[in-house]
Every structure is written in C-alpha cells, then in structure tokens.
C-alpha cells in the first residue's frame, strides 16, 4: 500500500507493506538516523516525532502514519548539532548509536517542559536506554544546553 506522509517538511509517497513498522519504512527510505535496538518497544533508539510528539517508530504501524507529519533527526540538523555540541563536549555521546533517538527525545522535551528539574529531565528520558555512558554525562550536557545550570546558578 502507498502512504503519503510529510517527512521533515517534504511530502513523500512511500510504498509500505501492511505489517511494516515506521522504523523500517523510514530506514528503507534512506533515513539512516533511525536505529533499532530492541524489538520490544522499550529502548528508545528509534524515536521520531509523529505530529511533533516523540514516538517509537519501531512500534508505530506505517499505515497509521498516512497523512501525518513525521520528523526525524535529519529534519532537525541545526538544532541537533547545537545540542550535540554539548553532548560531545562532555564526551557523553560515546558510541553514538543511541544518540539520534536520544536527541529526538531531548528536543521534544525542550518543547514540552519549561525549566525542567533534574528529576523531570530524568523522567522524560527514562525510555531512552544507553549502555555506554551511565547517563550522567548526558544529564550534564542537557543542563548546559537548556541553560538550566546557569539559571540555577543565577538564583
């Protein structure tokens, strides 16, 4: 079946199998930032935005994406780079394999939460697994990126 989606601001028409999941559809379409890490909808690596909301593309039936707007890291390169600078400055990208899904979630969080506390940041990102960094460097990077650290310092 054919689906029409708005992929990173461009209308595209893609042929999909009926039982295909969005992660596979997008990768086959050359969207290489999509990574799959688990097969059981619980690692967060494949996170993309559907209608601006972060979802697991491995658990999202492609047919249900018909007519929807899909955003991947390729569509947010400038913002992604701005955050990645902080991540890389901390050394907390490590193997980098989970970074795309992680950054998609961080950028969604930035839109959704105002001045989040450490606890709120951690809660929002619990669904993003990482085996390399131990998460702490990621938190340092996020706080610097969001200016939260600075904000607290001023108070």
């Amino acid at each position: 079946m054919q689906i029409e989606i708005n992929l990173n601001g461009k209308k595209v028409s893609i042929k999909v199998k009926k039982n295909e999941m969005l992660a596979d559809t997008l990768r086959a379409h050359g969207v290489y930032s999509i990574r799959k890490g688990c097969d059981t909808a619980c690692c967060g690596l494949c996170t993309v935005w559907v209608e601006e909301k972060p979802v697991l593309s491995c658990a999202f039936l492609s047919l249900k994406a018909q007519g929807k707007s899909i955003t991947t890291l390729e569509g947010l390169q400038e913002e992604a780079e701005a955050f990645a600078q902080h991540l890389v400055a901390e050394g907390s990208e490590q193997c980098g394999f989970c970074s795309p899904g992680f950054i998609m979630t961080v950028l969604a969080m930035k839109r959704e939460l105002k001045n989040p506390s450490d606890e709120e940041i951690i809660h929002y990102l619990t669904g993003n697994l990482c085996r390399c960094t131990g998460y702490l460097g990621q938190l340092r990077a996020i706080k610097k990126y969001l200016g939260v650290a600075q904000h607290e310092f001023c108070r």
């Binding site: 909808a41 619980c42 967060g44 996170t47 979802v55 969604a108 619990t126 669904g127």
Partner: peptide, 9 residues
C-alpha cells in the same frame, strides 16, 4: 510504563 515515546503510542 517504559518511557514517554512508548506512552505516546
């Protein structure tokens, strides 16, 4: 329940 991106689905 898992994470935000799961609960959005």
């Amino acid at each position: 329940i898992i994470g935000v991106q799961f609960r959005n689905i």
